[in-house]
């Protein structure tokens, strides 16, 4: 990169610093004796797609519900556009939510569901209809306006829920595992659509999921939650390639933990080459193929190694047989350390 180009880029990033839209400070919430959220700090930038990723019970949904206003924090603050909203009821916050079960009003048709927020806000009927129609078009449901939620498929309901939230043009959209109830194919399709929609409308998305693949696919940044706190915050690449804690390395992607030369190293399965003799990389370990599991696009090998530990590797060809003597090899620069 030329010196001038680098200067220009620095200049741009100085001129347009991403502004913080949600600022969370020392947020805590206890349910009974369980500390669901334990002193969370998080700045969310305007226009970004941020994912709160973590196993169930890690506090990610509670954080989302506190941003929405469904739960009150025991302590800490939530600033939305510079204003502390942590003590305000949900209806006084400029955020909208897409619920895990969609929470569509069963007694209203699609149009009334989507127009609900506008109607509450007192938007004139003509504008309401125009905006509702546009929202329907945005989620590709034109013509479904007079149906009841019960007459829609899961994917369609999901879209209505999305349109109902987006039509109000909130400054932040909260999504609580919205794809959880869809089957795999539809979920993958919706992941792409959601990401495109987010770019199109330019609204900040805060997305909760326990699915690490979903998080890696869609997010600008990921906050990995564990035991009520954020273990790591970073871009998908940072989180995947450079996990900052043992928990993150295991929760996001698969990791081999190997003790070599008296110290522990970590390596992702896909960086390990398994073959009968060929070596690719400066690390070489011999072993015997214990099991080969066909998982479609790749084959997962479980190798018993001379180190006395089993190593998992993935390989697209899958030509080796169980019981073969094999050589495992990888580039040591692909290894990562965990604090």
């Amino acid at each position: 990169m030329s010196q001038t180009l680098r200067k220009t880029l620095e200049f741009i990033s100085v001129v347009e610093p991403a502004s913080v839209i949600v600022s969370i400070r020392n947020l805590s919430r206890t349910f009974g004796s369980v500390k669901a959220v334990d002193g969370v700090n998080l700045d969310i930038y305007s226009g970004e797609f941020l994912t709160l990723l973590g196993p169930s019970g890690s506090g990610k949904t509670t954080v989302l519900r506190m941003i929405a206003g469904f739960e009150k924090p025991d302590s800490g603050t939530i600033e939305l556009g510079g204003r502390d909203v942590s003590q305000l009821p949900p209806y006084e916050r400029d955020v909208n939510t897409v619920f895990q079960d969609y929470a569509l009003f069963p007694h209203m048709d699609v149009i009334s569901n989507i127009g609900y927020g506008l109607r509450v806000a007192g938007v004139a009927k003509e504008e309401r209809i125009a905006r509702t129609e546009k929202a329907l078009e945005q989620v590709r449901l034109t013509g479904y306006g007079d149906r009841k939620p019960a007459e829609l498929s899961g994917g369609q309901r999901q879209r209505v829920a999305l349109a109902r939230a987006l039509v109000n043009r909130p400054s932040v959209l909260l999504l609580d595992e919205p794809l959880g109830a869809l089957d795999l194919k539809l979920r993958e399709q919706m992941q792409i659509e959601l990401k495109e929609l987010q770019r199109e409308v330019g609204i900040t998305f805060i997305f909760v999921t326990h699915d690490q693949e979903e998080a890696l696919t869609m997010s600008d940044r990921i906050a990995v939650f564990n035991l009520g706190n954020i273990e790591q915050l970073g871009t998908p690449r940072e989180v995947y390639e450079n996990p900052q804690s043992p928990f993150v390395s295991e929760f996001v992607g698969q990791t081999n933990k190997i003790t070599m030369d008296g110290r522990q190293i970590n390596i992702r399965p896909e960086f390990i080459t398994v073959s009968k003799s060929a070596e690719r990389g400066d690390r070489i370990v011999k072993g015997k193929l214990h099991d080969a599991i066909f998982v479609g696009a790749t084959t997962r090998y479980l190798v018993d190694t001379e180190l006395g530990e089993s190593i998992i590797s993935t390989d697209p060809s899958g030509l080796l047989d169980v019981g073969d003597d094999v050589v495992l090899s990888w580039e040591s620069e692909k290894e990562f350390l965990v604090k």
Partner: peptide, 18 residues
């Protein structure tokens, strides 16, 4: 009646009476 419906209504700006 799912609680999420009540949450959703508040989330969309409706007060308790509405």
């Amino acid at each position: 009646l799912p609680n999420s419906l009540l949450d959703a209504s508040g989330d969309l700006g409706a007060g308790n009476f509405y």
